[in-house]
């Protein structure tokens, strides 16, 4: 059943999931973005995870839960990194609705994301602004 985006209220939980940042995930991410910084080599030991890879995986949990509609646009992104993550760590991600409003043909969904490690320490938090076509929402 399609999600009724209009019913999403600020503070409402969207997702509470876990994922592992394993070598294959980090390798695929570094390859996809073409990162040439030399800081995030998955073959290093220990190897740092690019913080934006954590942000992307965290956002994925939101997109999955919202069954986001084709044509949805990403209008803005705030991110704060608070702790380095090494390859192989398991992270948990919680997302809630920040704002939900309609302007013209678009629904503006602001999603607040908080991601932590297995010790309960926060590693990243963020706020994603998504523009969902009203016709699809």
């Amino acid at each position: 059943m399609a999600l009724d985006y209009a019913s999403l209220e600020p503070g409402q939980s969207i997702s509470n999931t876990e994922f592992e940042v394993d070598v294959s995930l980090v390798s695929a991410y570094v390859d996809a973005v073409g990162d040439e910084s030399g800081i995030f080599d998955p073959d290093d030991s220990p190897s740092l995870v690019p913080p934006m890879a954590i942000a992307a995986q965290s956002l994925k949990t939101v997109l999955d839960e919202l069954a986001i509609q084709p044509g949805t646009l990403h209008a803005g992104q705030e991110i704060e990194f608070t702790k380095a993550v090494e390859v192989g760590e398991r992270l948990s991600c919680r997302a809630t609705v920040g704002q939900n409003s309609v302007r013209g043909d678009w629904r503006f969904l602001v999603v607040e994301i908080s991601t932590g490690n297995a010790s309960g320490q926060g590693v990243m938090s963020g706020k994603s602004t998504l523009m969902v076509p009203v016709a699809a929402s």
Partner: peptide
């Protein structure tokens, strides 16, 4: 987020681990 990753990469080049552990980013697409 693919384009945003380039900004993060530039910050990582400039600030290495400090960026990974303390960076804050606010972007408009």
């Amino acid at each position: 987020m693919l384009i945003a990753a380039l900004v993060s990469e530039a910050m990582a080049v400039g600030f290495t681990r400090d960026w990974v552990e303390t960076g804050r980013l606010k972007l408009r697409f």
